[in-house]
Design a protein around this nucleic acid. Sequence first.
DNA 1: CCGAAACAGATGACGTGTCAACCATTGCTG
DNA 2: CAGCAATGGTTGACACGTCATCTGTTTCGG
Lengths: 170, 170
Amino acid sequence: MRESTIEGPRWLDPREQTAWRAYLDMNAKLSARLNREMQDQSGISIADFSVLVQLSEHVDARMRVLGLARALGWEKSRLSHQLTRMQQRGLIERSNCNEDRRGAFVVLTDQGRATVEAAAPRHVESVRRYVFDSLSAEQVDSLGTISATVARVLAAACEGREDVDDGSCD
Amino acid sequence: MRESTIEGPRWLDPREQTAWRAYLDMNAKLSARLNREMQDQSGISIADFSVLVQLSEHVDARMRVLGLARALGWEKSRLSHQLTRMQQRGLIERSNCNEDRRGAFVVLTDQGRATVEAAAPRHVESVRRYVFDSLSAEQVDSLGTISATVARVLAAACEGREDVDDGSCD
DNA sequence: CCGAAACAGATGACGTGTCAACCATTGCTG
DNA sequence: CAGCAATGGTTGACACGTCATCTGTTTCGG
């Protein structure tokens, strides 16, 4: 995102400009690349993978929809659509909940488990290759600190609007 | 994206884990937030904004489609779809090119210019508020360096496959 | 000059993300 | 316990991204 030559109040200074552009650029390239490799190597998207990982970490590979949404930091509607697609591809199943009949469980299928177990090590390799292999230990820590700082600011920006049900304010 | 407890070769160490998760978290929150604010305040998406900024920076607010795609680092198909939607909303127009009759120009409309000029300062404010206001000068530089490093690795990873026409390998 | 390859760009299909509206069930309050 | 708000979850409409494919144009080797 070039910021144009239009003048506004409190424009970004040159170092900020540089950093911001580099960040946007890296981000676009990195997410595109990781998604493509996941698709090519394992036949699933990063979104699929995230859901499968959450489920596989749970006893019985069984979670309530809302718990899953919160764990992922996703909006419930987004998750619902995602689950529909994953169910069609045989990665998960839905089963209804007797304690609260509004609710539903999401269950990992055998195929889902096999898929995520095959995908995980390859994905780690990709992340390592594209990100961590070229960063120093200090840079890794720095990235973590910066990310956590910005994430905290964003979380704080959501205080005051408690009517949200999506994951943008956790 | 939790990386699960599945064992793979060369797993991420704890600091890398922490950094990676923080990065993913920040990223999800930040892009969601910036998109939402752009939409609420100016009625356009970040994608619209990026296109409008590129055009507004050019003499005559007039660019060839492929030049625009390269400037944005986008796949030409993605841009074509985007332009169709933007044309329907009156932000840009297409005009055909006499020098090369395969080609097409993209032209910024008056409405498009007004929109981007109103959106830009607000967007900068958002970026400043959520990102740069809470980072030290060293952190800003660090973010820039890290991003540039990773972006370079990703660009290098595309050498060797010259058959690409998208922006993932510029 | 002819024909094939390369190029500019558009299109259709499909997966993904967001918003708003919509059930059904639950639980609280009168 | 009647009624109504809150909760859990789904659905539909639409914007966005990617891939494969298509059309029309240019270019270049023979």
